[in-house]
Computed example of a mutant assay.
Amino acid sequence: MSGHFSALLRADTPAQGPRVPVSVLTGFLGSGKTTLLNQLLASPDLSGTAVIVNEFGEAGLDQDLLTAAAPDDVVLLPNGCLCCAVRGDLVQALGALMDRPGQAIQRVVIETSGLAEPGPILRTLLLDPLLSTRYRLGTVFCTVDAVLGQNSLAQHPEALAQLAAADEVLVTKLDLITHPAETASLLNCLAQLNPSAPVRQLGLDGVELLRQRLLAPRADLAPPPAPAFYHPVGAPTASPRHLADVQSFVLLRDEPLDLDGFAQWLDMVVAAQGEKLLRFKGLVQTVQSPEKPLVVHAIQHLFHPPAYLPAWPTADHRTRLVFITRGMDREALESTLDVMARPRRRRRPT
């Protein structure tokens, strides 16, 4: 029986009109998410931005701190974990934003609770049949406190899940760091734990870059940005504890892979060890379409719909697969990939 990735690969994407991008701003408690949002929303260019605040506890406060946003553009979801019980609230909130009278919503930003794992939010956005016709997933940003970030990652699994889900990492409170070695240690730690996410040191330039990302054209069905690959120097600098079994690595393949075999391999990996997979991202060169890289993304058991880029972004056409895992066996992944996704030799007709 085929798995989820194989089914997505075979699925025909229905024609749709333009969809509203939903970006997710995650990060552990006190990492500066609300402060950053206020700076962004103060820009006149970002009018038409709705904000959904997911705050822990019955009495929310963060929505009142978003002084740069119009009151009608802020929605509070008071359950900070965004677990299964409140996914319906997220669906309802996004539906209400789309259907309300007045100025059309141009983009949505979801600010998660500092204790929330972003996986349920992303699953809701990608899998809900109604939302997927009206919204598309934008960029997942993760703020990391420059002072307390490494301790948070070492002590709180939620902080690690937030970092693993990120497309871009935003380091805040750098002005409080007095020793350059501390900054270098943190940046190396972040690159070790999520090697495919660019790390931005947030100053005025960083806020401007973020503003430009939110203003990017709403190209419907655009594939996610091609993953970047970082190779930090030195050993991981995060404290041990629950990070001891977390590892990130990149699988490289020089020869094109058979698409069907690769899909079956990925289905097998997720079925057997999906609970160990925090993040997966890659560019795949296939035998079937060697000149167009296949972009693949997964967060835990959830895959983004795979999409082909029109051309390779660089001269490097190798397959590159980034894994962030809890105790996955790299050698087993390597050997099974070589067996299952190797190019099939077709027999010549006799």
Rank of each mutant, 00 (worst) to 15 (best):
F280P: 07
F280R: 10
K281M: 08
G282N: 02
G282T: 08
L283P: 10
V284K: 02
V284L: 03
Q285F: 09
T286Q: 11
T286W: 11
V287F: 00
V287W: 03
S289G: 06
S289R: 13
S289W: 11
S289E: 15
P290R: 07
E291T: 10
K292R: 15
K292F: 12
P293L: 00
V295G: 08
V295E: 12
V296Y: 00
V296E: 03
H297L: 01
H297T: 06
A298V: 00
Q300S: 12
Q300N: 12
H301V: 10
H301T: 10
L302A: 03
H304R: 08
P305M: 09
P306W: 09
P306T: 13
A307R: 14
P310A: 13
A311C: 00
A311S: 08
P313N: 00
T314K: 06
D316C: 06
D316N: 08
D316G: 06
H317Y: 11
T319P: 08
T319Q: 07
T319E: 08
T319N: 11
R320E: 07
R320I: 02
L321M: 15
V322Q: 04
F323K: 08
I324E: 04
T325Y: 05
T325I: 02
R326L: 01
G327C: 13
M328W: 12
D329E: 15
D329C: 15
D329Q: 15
R330D: 05
R330E: 15
E331V: 10
E331I: 05
A332C: 09
A332L: 15
L333H: 00
L333A: 04
E334W: 08
S335N: 03
T336C: 06
T336H: 13
L337T: 02
D338Y: 00
V339F: 12
V339C: 01
A341D: 05
A341I: 07
R342Y: 01
